[in-house]
Design a protein around this nucleic acid. Structure first.
Lengths: 128, 128
DNA sequence: CCGTATCCCACTAGATACTG
DNA sequence: CAGTATCTAGTGGGATACGG
C-alpha cells in the first residue's frame, strides 16, 4: 500500500480502497461472507494467496477484524458501505446496460456496447 | 485497466476508480481544475506522463471530456462526486486525526498515531 | 476446510528529458 | 503552458503447489 503523500482525506481513503480487488472483498464482507472460502467464492478469479494478503492489509488498517476464525468488518469497515453502494449505483448506471437512465450520447453508447461485449465474453468464466 | 471478470456493478465502478491516482484526479476535477497544469498542482507527486495517461483513460471510459483544451467531467464523471465526497468523509473520520468521532479503541488509536506520523513526514514534501 | 509459500513475468509507474 | 518520449527498476499479482 503505497501512500500518495497528501494530507488529504480522499487520498487516505484511496490508499485503502484502490488496491486491486479490495472493493470487491469489502462488498463480500458487507454481504456477510465471513469465512475465507466464502470470500473466495465471491471473487473466484482472485488467487487465494492474494486474497489472504488483502485480508491481512485490511486487518492492519483496521477495516477487518478476525473473530474466531471469521473475518468481520470493524465499525470503520462497516462505514465503507455507502461508498461501495454508491459505486454499485454508478456502475449500474454508467458501465452496464442501464441505458434508459443515461443521456443518449453516441460516444457513451459506443462505450456501453463495448463494455457489454467484454462482459459477455467474461460471463462464461464466472457466475456473479 | 484490467477487468475483474465479474458482471457486477461494483466491479465496473472499481475498474474505473481503483487505478492509482484516479480518485485524486477526479477530486481535482470536481474542484474545477480544468487545465493540465492546474491538475498537476493538485497531484504534484505524480509524473506528467502518468497524469496524461490517466486523463486519456478517463476520457476513454466517458468520465472526462476535452472541451477546447480543457478537461471537464462528463455527467458520468460528475456523478462520481458523492463517492469521492464519502471517501473524504471516511478518510477524515478513520484515517486522520478526527479522534473525537471514533471509538476509543486501543488498536485503532495506535493505528491513528502511526498514520499521523507517516503523514507528518510527508507533510514536508507537499502542500495539500 | 483454511490458508501460506514460491516462482516469475508483465506491466506499472517513477525519473528524466525533450518538444510544439 | 501543455504535454510526449523513453528507459528501467521494482513489484504486483497470477499460477501453482504445498502444509496445518
Amino acid at each position: 500500500m503505497t501512500t500518495y503523500g497528501q494530507w488529504c482525506p480522499v487520498a487516505m481513503a484511496a490508499e485503502v480502497l484502490t488496491e486491486r480487488w479490495t472493493p470487491l472483498i469489502v462488498r463480500e464482507l458487507l454481504c456477510d461472507s465471513t469465512r475465507f472460502n466464502d470470500l473466495r467464492r465471491g471473487v473466484p478469479l482472485m488467487s487465494p494467496s492474494l486474497l489472504s494478503k488483502r485480508l491481512e492489509t485490511l486487518r492492519r488498517v483496521g477495516v477487518v477484524a478476525r473473530v474466531g476464525g471469521e473475518y468481520r468488518l470493524t465499525p470503520a469497515g462497516e462505514e465503507l458501505r455507502p461508498i461501495i453502494e454508491l459505486m454499485g449505483v454508478w456502475g449500474r448506471r454508467w458501465a452496464m446496460g442501464d441505458v434508459e437512465a443515461k443521456h443518449h450520447d453516441a460516444g457513451l453508447l459506443m462505450w456501453d456496447i463495448h463494455r457489454n461485449i467484454v462482459a459477455d465474453r467474461l460471463l462464461a468464466a464466472t457466475s456473479r
